[in-house]
Write a protein that binds this DNA or RNA. Structure first.
Lengths: 235, 235
DNA sequence: ATCGAAAAAGTTATCAGACCACCCGACCAC
DNA sequence: GTGGTCGGGTGGTCTGATAACTTTTTCGAT
């Protein structure tokens, strides 16, 4: 015999609103009916309705604009995954731990990308590499461009699980850099060397040298690790 | 020029409550002050206070018991990690995709475990292997025991990032098995072979043969993959 | 003295109504 | 074309009340 769980009214209201959204009755971007109207339609007080709306807003399902109404947001996976980066960072682990994990995953991703990348994947990677080189010529390599390269690599595996998990870990890694290294934009390292490392990864992928791609990527991350340690000991 | 974001009152109230919890003033398991008292202390109406509490309850930070009060819950990482497992499962990927990802991560984990496992780690792994062998002698290998072995392996890396991410992926994997293969308890495969595979992994770890541990684990997962494919084509 | 039932006190849950703050569109003046 | 004002609609917050639930205290029976 289980205890009977009472349903809180706001939870029931949330369910009704979620139904409206899931059924397509209210599409992303469009406005829910006014609060007073919805409260009457659902047969609840406006206070109960507002509690439900507030929860949905905090969960980024809707956005409530004062004087205008409640709008359904376009939900994407990134919002769902954000807490995970937090978990990885609050533990006693460090960005070095995350780098170690990245070596395992991204080494495997580079291997699979070398086996499976389409010509479109490769031209995307080439374009990003050009952006990296241009950024370096102008003064630095940004976290954003580095992220794009690694993301495109994950996509080239053709395995969505890699994309998702690598995204989360890279996000945690970059947040960790900001927190523990006070770095907002720049990755440490000799600029020309960084371009060369990324280019070597891409060359292995183009040549379909899977094992070489794995090694190139692992060595790249090992050098990032060394640079972080050097940077840390210089502070 | 940025748009100016107005702060909603419930958000400010949430922050105050989070401060009370984070400062240790209110510990997990204990009760927040009564609503009317808190509303007065914070200088807001009870309705605004309730909106904030409702959000915190929906986020599992607190539990509100009717007639009793609001209690601070003991937050654990599992709740935060759940979305990733969900995302991995709702995507077009399959359990084969997850196995591929596991090969990269767990191969690396086996490598690091072989380098770093303490004698305690090793005796835990041995104990779990004994349980696996006993289970096999009695009639089958359960998902639960398999999970324990892989979890202990992640722990032996000494890197918390591995533990967390491997947990999530294994969770998603096993859920995926249940959904797509209708298997609740048993892993497919010849029973004695499975024990041997796990034992080979452990022997490599004990001998500190890191590369051997990596290979043993990858081969184990490759055989799981083959068994799943064989099983699928027999349905 | 102990136990169980009832009453009292404390707390949350929901409602209703009021007033304030903001948004948006229409219209007018320059 | 731009800025200002107005009116209507909508959200934001408050106050006060009643209902529902939990916990503590009191009281009567044994």
């Amino acid at each position: 015999m289980q205890t009977i769980k009472r349903t809180k009214l706001y939870e029931a209201v949330i369910q009704e609103i979620q139904k409206m959204i899931a059924s397509g009755q209210i599409k992303p971007g469009s406005k829910l009916p006014p609060e007073r109207e919805m409260a009457e339609t659902l047969g609840v007080s406006r206070a109960a309705l507002r509690e439900a709306l507030t929860v949905l807003e905090a969960a980024r399902v809707i956005e409530i604009r004062h004087g205008s109404g409640a709008y359904v947001l376009d939900v994407n996976d990134e919002l769902l995954l954000r807490p995970l980066a937090l978990v990885l960072l609050t533990e006693k682990g460090t960005v070095i731990d995350l780098l170690e994990l990245r070596k395992g995953i991204e080494g495997e991703a580079a291997y699979l990308a070398a086996e499976r990348a389409t010509s479109e994947d490769i031209s995307i990677l080439e374009k990003i590499l050009d952006e990296i080189a241009a950024g370096v010529a102008k003064g630095g390599l940004t976290v954003h461009e580095d992220f794009k390269f690694h993301y495109a690599l994950a996509e080239a595996t053709g395995n969505p699980a890699f994309t998702k998990v690598m995204n989360v870990i890279a996000d945690a890694f970059h947040q960790g850099l900001r927190t523990s290294h006070g770095m907002l934009i720049q990755l440490p390292g000799r600029r020309e060397t960084i371009v060369k490392e990324h280019r070597r990864i891409l060359e292995c992928i183009k040549k379909r040298d899977a094992e070489g791609a794995r090694q190139a990527l692992r060595e790249h991350l090992e050098r990032v690790e060394k640079r972080l340690e050097d940077w840390a000991s210089s502070q």
